Amino acid sequence: MTSEPAVRVRVLIVDDQVLMRQGLRKLLELEDSVEVTADAAGGAAALAHLATAEPPPDVALVDAHMPGMDGIALIARLTVEHPSVAAVILTTFDEDDYIFGGLRAGAKGYLLKDTDPDELVSSLHRAARGEMVLGSAAASRLVEALQGAATPRAAEPEATSPLSERETEVAHLVGEGATNRQIARRLFITEGTTKNHISSILRKLELHDRTQLAVWVRRSGPTDPTG
């Protein structure tokens, strides 16, 4: 699939969803330049494997959101206990907490699960060489954060909404009556990511469905974050 060099990158897959682990393994095993050494259903299983792996993998491909020890906590452990293993986050979430939390913990990359397979393989090779790899969503968030830090702002009142900035954007569009596909196109994310955001919003606001969310937005919800 790719034009990467013949040097083989050893990869550990860490994801709590068995179908995702199996699918990634089958996808990567098609590549002559990638060797999947093992897969683990969570952080504890990954650390147990690494304790005896010889040689260790070059890259750990880690889901951010997992029960028990999540991906961010696992990466923090890897950074200290297995510094030779480059951790790359592969997730459906593009929230700031995951992106910046993962990078602060020591991740070498942040990619979404709709990443093109060729780009994924290339990213594994680059991470193994010590390079930083960021998907377009993570790169955009990082640029926005840097630009915001460079621009003086007036003091703002403390936020009272339980929603993240991206969730606020999604909620506003739901209030406008936008479909998941329309929201995805507007925010340059996938429909799967949109569904995840809506599920998180409903959980945080203790609402049952998007109809209740639309009513909440129109009555007391967030104003349009884009303008």
Results as ranks from 00 to 15, higher is better:
residue 140 S to C: 09
residue 219 R to Q: 14
residue 139 A to G: 00
residue 212 Q to R: 13
residue 133 V to S: 12
residue 75 I to N: 04
residue 130 G to A: 07
residue 199 S to C: 03
residue 108 K to T: 01
residue 214 A to N: 03
residue 213 L to D: 02
residue 103 L to E: 10
residue 136 S to P: 04
residue 172 H to S: 04
residue 177 G to Y: 04
residue 39 D to R: 04
residue 185 R to Y: 05
residue 44 A to G: 07
residue 227 G to C: 05
residue 111 L to G: 06
residue 110 Y to F: 15
residue 72 I to K: 12
residue 27 L to I: 01
residue 213 L to F: 03
residue 179 T to R: 03
residue 171 A to L: 11
residue 44 A to T: 14
residue 18 V to W: 01
residue 151 T to W: 05
residue 50 L to P: 09
residue 145 A to R: 15
residue 29 E to M: 13
residue 170 V to L: 11
residue 170 V to A: 05
residue 45 A to C: 02
residue 110 Y to C: 10
residue 155 A to F: 12
residue 147 Q to P: 02
residue 154 A to H: 13
residue 117 P to Q: 06
residue 185 R to T: 13
residue 128 A to S: 13
residue 78 L to G: 04
residue 5 P to S: 10
residue 186 R to D: 11
residue 69 M to F: 07
residue 224 D to Q: 05
residue 184 A to D: 12
residue 111 L to K: 03
residue 196 N to L: 15
residue 112 L to W: 02
residue 112 L to P: 01
residue 180 N to C: 09
residue 85 V to P: 10
residue 216 W to Q: 05
residue 144 E to W: 07
residue 78 L to Q: 07
residue 57 P to D: 12
residue 185 R to N: 13
residue 39 D to Q: 09
residue 126 R to I: 03
residue 111 L to P: 06
residue 191 E to N: 08
residue 144 E to F: 11
residue 196 N to R: 14
residue 134 L to H: 08
residue 163 L to D: 09
residue 18 V to Q: 14
residue 171 A to W: 11
residue 179 T to H: 00
residue 66 M to A: 05
residue 92 T to Y: 13
residue 192 G to Y: 03
residue 150 A to L: 15
residue 90 L to I: 04
residue 98 Y to V: 03
residue 146 L to R: 11
residue 177 G to I: 04
residue 80 V to W: 00
residue 142 L to A: 13
residue 5 P to H: 06
residue 219 R to T: 11
residue 90 L to S: 03
residue 115 T to M: 11
residue 36 V to M: 01
residue 215 V to R: 15
residue 119 E to A: 15
residue 193 T to Q: 14
residue 95 E to S: 10
residue 211 T to D: 15
residue 19 L to W: 00
residue 55 P to Q: 02
residue 214 A to W: 03
residue 189 I to E: 05
residue 217 V to N: 01
residue 216 W to E: 09
residue 81 E to D: 15
residue 73 A to V: 10
residue 68 G to H: 04
residue 180 N to V: 09
residue 75 I to L: 01
residue 58 D to I: 06
residue 174 V to H: 00
residue 135 G to A: 11
residue 197 H to M: 11
residue 52 T to S: 14
residue 84 S to C: 08
residue 26 K to Y: 12
residue 156 E to G: 11
residue 223 T to A: 15
residue 84 S to Y: 01
residue 145 A to I: 00
residue 175 G to P: 06
residue 39 D to Y: 13
residue 168 T to Y: 00
residue 69 M to W: 07
residue 126 R to P: 02
residue 120 L to C: 01
residue 225 P to I: 09
residue 70 D to L: 08
residue 121 V to W: 02
residue 81 E to Y: 00
residue 150 A to F: 12
residue 141 R to G: 07
residue 158 E to D: 12
residue 195 K to E: 15
residue 50 L to W: 07
residue 42 G to M: 09
residue 166 R to W: 01
residue 55 P to C: 07
residue 7 V to W: 09
residue 162 P to E: 07
residue 64 A to K: 03
residue 15 D to G: 06
residue 13 I to M: 06
residue 25 R to N: 06
residue 174 V to A: 02
residue 63 D to G: 07
residue 31 E to G: 08
residue 53 A to P: 02
residue 151 T to Y: 05
residue 21 R to K: 06
residue 3 S to D: 14
residue 113 K to Y: 07
residue 172 H to V: 12
residue 66 M to Q: 04
residue 183 I to H: 06
residue 6 A to N: 12
residue 157 P to Q: 13
residue 130 G to I: 01
residue 11 V to K: 02
residue 90 L to T: 01
residue 40 A to F: 09
residue 63 D to N: 12
residue 58 D to A: 10
residue 201 I to C: 00
residue 146 L to D: 05
residue 146 L to V: 14
residue 127 A to Q: 08
